[in-house]
């Protein structure tokens, strides 16, 4: 998608992990690694975005995600403004109008979360050249920073992606996280990406994204190096997609026995928040192989990396040092 890469190959918006060149994906991970030191220090700030304004524009409430973006922006010394649009759906025209109003505030970066697929692309198409858009989740389409923090977590534990088998388990159909993970992992040349779900939770032709499909988790988890569990929304029982939470846990929930099918050193991930006893057993979520809390920490570093990259700050700072 050239919409997010400018003529010089630089990341101008961050809308999706689809189609990003491998070196760009790796550079984001490297940049995030370099920020980890900052996060561990007692003064957790770098001046990269001093004087820049970041607006968190959330059309869909998500305190957790918004908080990590806010924290990331503040650690880069940016000014942060949170605009919660609540759950009321905003019609197209007023969405565009409102953006122009916000542009008038001379913000540099909008972090956008919206319930509709394509919302971030739509907004990116319509803002001034001086404004960058960072997709914090749009409908079922994409959640690229989540996918990148997952990739960072995997790289820290496993090193290279080429020899890895990654299994993504759960509601792929409704998951922007899964879609972005698949594109990021394939972009990073992961050996094999699998999706495991009942057919009602798998979109048509998911294979075309470059994954192997398994209906049977015992088969799909076999020798996996990374197991990513997705959150199951309770409303899925309503649309006749699943019989019950109990049935789902029995067939697809990650138990210790089931995890034993994976590689003994496999790591267990989850984008949160967890439904204990629905998609994952507590003893696994809190167990030795779980890296779920680490994902949260890595989320801040990744968001710092993406923000500083799209605003050109990291790039510029690197050049000055040369």
């Amino acid at each position: 998608m050239s919409q997010q890469i400018d003529a010089n190959g630089q990341l101008r918006h961050f809308l999706t992990t689809e189609g990003l060149p491998p070196d760009l994906l790796n550079r984001l991970l490297d940049t995030a690694d370099s920020f980890t030191g900052v996060i561990d220090k007692s003064v957790k700030k770098v001046p990269l975005l001093r004087g820049r304004t970041v607006v968190n524009l959330f059309f869909e409430p998500s305190t957790r995600t918004r908080t990590t973006f806010e924290l990331a922006a503040k650690r880069l010394s940016a000014d942060v403004l949170n605009v919660d649009m609540g759950t009321t759906s905003v019609k197209g025209e007023s969405l565009a109008d409102m953006l122009h109003n916000l542009e008038a505030m001379q913000a540099d970066l909008f972090v956008v979360r919206h319930a509709d697929s394509g919302a971030a692309n739509y907004i990116a198409d319509r803002v001034d050249d001086s404004v960058a858009i960072l997709n914090a989740g749009d409908g079922r389409h994409a959640h690229p920073t989540q996918a990148m923090l997952d990739a960072l977590t995997i790289r820290r534990h496993k090193g290279r992606f080429e020899p890895l088998t990654v299994a993504i388990v759960g509601d792929i159909l409704h998951s922007r996280v899964a879609r972005s993970q698949i594109h990021a992992l394939n972009g990073l040349a992961t050996g094999e990406v699998r999706v495991i779900a009942p057919r009602t939770l798998l979109p048509e032709d998911i294979e075309s994204l470059g994954v192997k499909v398994y209906y049977d988790p015992d088969e799909g988890l076999k020798d996996a190096d990374v197991v990513i569990m997705l959150r199951l929304q309770r409303e899925r029982m309503q649309g006749a997609l699943l019989p019950s939470e109990g049935e789902y846990f029995k067939r697809y929930g990650l138990t210790r026995e089931r995890l034993a099918r994976a590689h003994p050193e496999a790591i267990v991930m989850h984008p949160g928040p967890i439904n204990r006893g629905v998609e994952i057993e507590s003893s696994v979520a809190d167990g030795r192989q779980s890296v779920i809390l680490e994902q949260v920490t890595n989320g801040i570093a990744i968001r710092m990396a993406v923000m500083s990259t799209v605003l050109g700050a990291y790039h510029d700072a690197g050049r000055e040092a040369e």
């Binding site: 697929s117 394509g118 409908g139 079922r140 389409h141 979109p203 032709d205 998911i206 075309s208 994204l209």
Partner: peptide, 14 residues
């Protein structure tokens, strides 16, 4: 109901 809807994350009419 095909690869484009799957990529874009949009509901389908099969």
């Amino acid at each position: 109901d095909g690869p484009v809807a799957t990529r874009l994350g949009l509901p389908t009419i099969p």
